[in-house]
Design a protein around this nucleic acid. Structure first.
Lengths: 107, 107
DNA sequence: ACCGTGCATAGCTTGTTGGCTATGCATCGA
DNA sequence: TCGATGCATAGCCAACAAGCTATGCACGGT
């Protein structure tokens, strides 16, 4: 299996794709047609991006007749938050180490 | 000016580049040579990635003789955290709206 | 049963990008 | 001063990815 933050970063790196995800976060569930209307790209492109977002676990789809409704899956952002916290944590640890060193030097 | 989270996502989307940033977060300041030794790619590639990370504000460089020391700039991650919080916020708001609706329906 | 509609898939084209080698430039040591 | 070393830049190539149009497929309405 591929690393989780890697998939998220790759998926959210594309502006069009990220815009779709943002809209789903802001406005809730939308059909492909509704998303296409204001996406600035063709319908097949929207479908493709939604497929990629789905693979990344960032969206969910629900079929209703011949329409497909997509909605954001916010929980999928967790690895991103974890990664950020981890980076911050490393930084903090190094800072603490420095503090300790300075304390020891001070004695 | 380009959108801040966009630059961050694009910059961190590349595994090699993100690995470099992670090492700088974990291990602190490193020279280009030290980074190259375990990067799995050639030195010019490392330099190039460091340049891109620098442009994104994610790293800082310090020249000392003929060596260049790079270090992580953790503050640059702020827009990423903001973006994530914003998305979570939208989701929360929609949830609250739904709660309100249910409450009103309950009356 | 048929046509229209909504979405997905296929196939193609093009721009971007991440890798390489070769080279330039500055600094340090002898 | 001259060779070696450390890093940056240049130039090239291959792979990928994002866009398009055309088409397929399934469902709904009439």
């Amino acid at each position: 299996m591929s690393n989780a933050p890697d998939v998220l970063f790759r998926t959210l790196a594309d502006p069009t794709r990220r815009a779709l995800f943002e809209r789903l976060c802001r406005e809730g569930e939308k059909t492909v047609g509704a998303l296409t209307a204001r996406a600035g790209v063709s319908q097949p492109v929207v479908s493709k991006h939604l497929g990629i977002l789905k693979q990344a676990g960032l969206v969910r789809d629900r079929h209703e007749g011949r329409q497909t409704h997509y909605s954001a899956q916010l929980g999928a952002l967790a690895p991103l938050i974890d990664w950020t916290s981890e980076m911050a944590g490393f930084w903090q640890n190094r800072f603490n180490d420095l503090e300790d060193l300075l304390k020891r030097m001070d004695q």
